[in-house]
Design a protein around this nucleic acid. Sequence first.
DNA 1: ATCGCTGCAAAAATTTTGCAGGTAA
DNA 2: TTACCTGCAAAATTTTTGCAGCGAT
Lengths: 155, 155
Amino acid sequence: MRRKRMSLLTSAATRKMPLPELTNRLRRKFHKVTGPRQAILQILRRHHGPLSIKEIQERLSDDDCDLATIYRSMHLLEEMGMVKRFHFGSGGARFELLKEGDDGHHHHLVCTRCAGVVEIEECLLQDVENHLARRSGFKGVTHKLEFFGICPRCQ
Amino acid sequence: MRRKRMSLLTSAATRKMPLPELTNRLRRKFHKVTGPRQAILQILRRHHGPLSIKEIQERLSDDDCDLATIYRSMHLLEEMGMVKRFHFGSGGARFELLKEGDDGHHHHLVCTRCAGVVEIEECLLQDVENHLARRSGFKGVTHKLEFFGICPRCQ
DNA sequence: ATCGCTGCAAAAATTTTGCAGGTAA
DNA sequence: TTACCTGCAAAATTTTTGCAGCGAT
């Protein structure tokens, strides 16, 4: 997963998991497959890149579910390891579906105009983490890295 | 500033600017040097690492100034380029004093237990930015990078 | 003396929680 | 049937704003 040659990842590779695969993950952990949860998973599944709570709400057909339910669902999905929470500077958290077994460690190139996202597959910072840990005495060093810029369409 | 050999920066190198130097920067731009602003600058000046709004408030002697004034001051100082705003995942923004002329581009190694911070002077990602820009067509590519771990004292 | 700054209070924005009723399994 | 889930409303957070009066220059 790490130490790869630089490459950008297309959306198809990580998204478009079938819905039943997702709901089965719920069932396996004895959570219920309800309307709101299916609707939210559909939205995450179909969208490329992390979505904010508001963006999810806007995409739900007129009040498929309550805002509180979205928050509760995102907490559940995060705790189950089905989504990963990101923070792109200011604004609330954003959530992105994770494939089963994926720890979600990857980075984004985010357009500061339209919030469009390109995913970056590889992570080059393993060596840097090790070096930092050695030099600073910290244990369990991890990192968060996001790139920002203006995408071709917005230029 | 960039492309340096890896090194950790001690606090002394970036903080401890004399207070008059800071207030003069306000005066030069025709802002007033008031009690709250001096108190806030003192706190930022004396503390190593970015502080949250709440941490600033706690350090102010019993209601040296109103919470709204802290928010307004941080906006002003940020707009003037005197502080830089950071986001370490969840929780509110954090602010760190900047030397005159410093664009504030640097990273941190943050202890997830005590929130202690080690600054990381160099930035290794210039090449990565260039590569990403070329490959993705994005312009003006920048990045945010923070490291997390458990510091020696908290282990 | 002037205009900017401040405290206070209210509002706005975001996230969490309690509770009674509904629903998946 | 039963435990979990949901909507609704209220509360808790965090940040912003309006306004009248004070204070740095």
